[in-house]
């Protein structure tokens, strides 16, 4: 792991981001107050179950939410609130300063245009340069992400690429304008297990080549383990714990994080058996009062069901958690043991 870059400048800051979707069935509160900051060259992991609002919050940063979505809060890119920027300047940031890689490379590329064209287009969207020059840049990027015979590959259509190659092409597209921030939304989830590691590695390599910071979204703590400097855990549209990666892994102060850790195979915990958190996340339409995790939390009691805990500092070094009973987790040696059923042997 590289040195923690928190001393360097802050490029992205999200404050109290709220995203809601009015739907026929009611207001979906997809994101309910997310705040984080991202420093130059930093890797921030955002982890949470499906539906916890990871994608929605990053689409909000990109300004790519579907029409009808309501966004509140502040999103500061180098001090400018992008939500207040005029549309044209906002578009100027997109793809040039902040780029995004999507989850499913099979559908993220337009099937009717060549890969080269789609890459060159990303350059031409921001700089009026000759097409040849844009294509040359595209070729360079394909080389960088490790696609062999880049020259010919420029003329291929996406359907002639494998999933891994398409995701490489997406990475190339993201970094083609030397962005400051890359938001990678589960970049490996849709891929074969065998290529997942390669793609992650490539992503980090490319990030270093262009000196970008990364927001790495995943529902898999294992992915962020060796990579992220800091981790933000989300549950039901809210951040429930944030801190330096090691702290999150070894001293989780929120039962949900502990549960996630417990459901990972073979981290130095015992047992080796998956211990999933039972139950399902709450509906985002009619959120019950109190802690949204309380129906699934082994520590839950009356206060949890009545009062939603706020994110509070639990440790120095920027470790925050949203739990009334974080101190109970601090008291046990292995917090993941909380999720073990009684019949199982406790080590």
């Amino acid at each position: 792991m590289t040195n923690h870059p928190s001393e360097t400048g802050e490029i992205l800051r999200v404050e109290d981001l709220v995203v809601e979707f009015p739907t026929e069935d009611g207001l979906v509160q997809a994101v309910r107050g997310v705040s984080y900051s991202l420093h130059e060259r930093e890797v921030l992991g955002i982890v949470g179950e499906s539906g916890s609002g990871k994608s929605v919050s990053s689409l909000a940063v990109m300004g790519l939410l579907p029409r009808g979505a309501r966004v509140r809060g502040r999103i500061l890119y180098r001090g400018d609130d992008v939500l207040k920027l005029p549309a044209r300047r906002r578009r100027g940031l997109r793809g040039r300063k902040i780029a995004m890689i999507f989850q499913d490379p099979m559908t993220a590329l337009n099937p009717v245009h060549t890969v080269g064209d789609q890459l060159a287009e990303a350059v031409l969207a921001h700089d009026l340069v000759p097409r040849k020059q844009a294509l040359a840049r595209a070729r360079e990027m394909l080389d960088l992400v490790g696609i062999p015979q880049a020259e010919q590959r420029l003329r291929s259509y996406p359907h002639e690429f494998s999933g891994g190659m398409r995701q490489r092409a997406m990475i190339a597209m993201a970094v083609i304008n030397n962005p400051d921030v890359i938001i990678a939304d589960e970049p490996t989830t849709a891929l074969d297990v065998t290529v997942q590691a390669q793609i992650l590695e490539k992503l980090l390599e490319v990030k270093d080549a262009v000196n970008a910071a990364i927001v790495l979204i995943t529902h898999d703590l294992g992915v962020v383990a060796g990579i992220a400097h800091r981790v933000l855990v989300m549950y039901a549209g809210k951040p429930v714990e944030i801190g330096v990666t090691d702290t999150i892994f070894y001293r989780p102060r929120m039962p949900y994080t502990a549960g996630l850790l417990g459901s990972m195979p073979s981290l130095e915990t015992s047992g080796g058996r998956l211990r999933p958190i039972s139950g399902a996340p709450p509906s985002l339409i009619n959120l019950p009062s109190g802690c949204p995790f309380s129906p699934r939390c082994p520590l839950a009691e009356d206060r949890c069901r009545a009062e939603e805990p706020a994110l509070g500092e639990v440790d120095e070094g920027g470790h925050y958690a949203a739990c009334h009973h974080w101190d109970q987790l601090a008291a046990v040696a292995d917090p993941t043991a909380l999720f073990r059923t009684e019949s199982e042997p406790v080590t």
Binding site: T107, N110, A125
Partner: peptide, 21 residues
């Protein structure tokens, strides 16, 4: 569709997103 979102993510103007993609 996803690729239209990709096109927007590149910073293409809405006109190009519609006419080209």
């Amino acid at each position: 569709l996803d690729y239209v979102r990709t096109a927007r993510a590149k910073g293409l103007p809405e006109r190009t997103v519609v006419t080209k993609h």
